[in-house]
Design a protein around this nucleic acid. Structure first.
Lengths: 125, 125
DNA sequence: CTGTATCCTAGCCGATACTG
DNA sequence: CAGTATCGGCTAGGATACAG
């Protein structure tokens, strides 16, 4: 197991092109694999599976298989996964406050508004 | 210019293998290029320069050239660079609180203690 | 001393095809 | 439906040599 400092360790958990978006999608309740792929349209199934596996391994999300035909798999946040939104909140707060060049919006922040209620210092775009 | 959301934008500023460590070194005052290379011993001059240039471009650090022989160049934090430590603090706080696997220490966190005074929920190793 | 210039490798990610 | 398997590109970063 890699021995990292807390900062690097935390960063490594959210390092992955689609992880924030996955976390966001799961934040509103369990989602099936296919649904995830549909909502994050430009991710390939290979990479999606890859990132899901990593996040599951890291304890951020949970994978539940239903023994049915056709197969059903639901992903959901763990407590730990839910708690990392405090980190996103700080990253976002600092970004809005200090960084000049984020006039853009991304699929995450365009809709992350509801995740950060009570914070009203910008509208995410 | 890339249009990113605040979260991604903030992450991109500290994405770089040596940036946190550079920031840490500069946090105690201006440091010369050679000194940086010496303190961060396993970074090559190419990469060190590269990351310094990016951080300068991003507004995190300042580069001051002294017109002397032999040449002297000092790097220091900008206000913005100094302010990003609040982000590190949150990343560290969450890591210590939530993530189980960071018994290790790294050169950053082994010495980041003094940077986070007033926070006493772990000793960084 | 403070960098550039080259070359090279590992890892992430995408596209496409295929499977239980 | 929920994935694997395979191939292939791109880029961050390392090693080494050289330059002003």
């Amino acid at each position: 197991m890699e021995e990292k400092c807390p900062i690097e360790s935390t960063l490594s958990l959210i390092n992955g092109k689609w992880k924030q978006m996955i976390l966001k999608e799961l934040s509103q309740g369990p989602v099936r694999y296919g649904q995830l792929g549909a909502r994050i349209s430009s991710v390939s199934s290979k990479v999606l599976t890859q990132q899901l596996r990593e996040m599951e391994h890291d304890g951020l999300i949970r994978r539940k298989v239903f023994p049915e035909v056709p197969p059903r798999v639901e992903y959901s946040l763990t407590e730990m996964g839910a708690s990392i939104f405090t980190v996103f909140k700080e990253l976002r707060r600092w970004g809005l406050e200090e960084d000049a060049m984020h006039r853009g919006k991304c699929s995450f922040c365009g809709q992350c508004q509801p995740l950060f209620q009570g914070e009203r210092q910008g509208d995410g775009r």
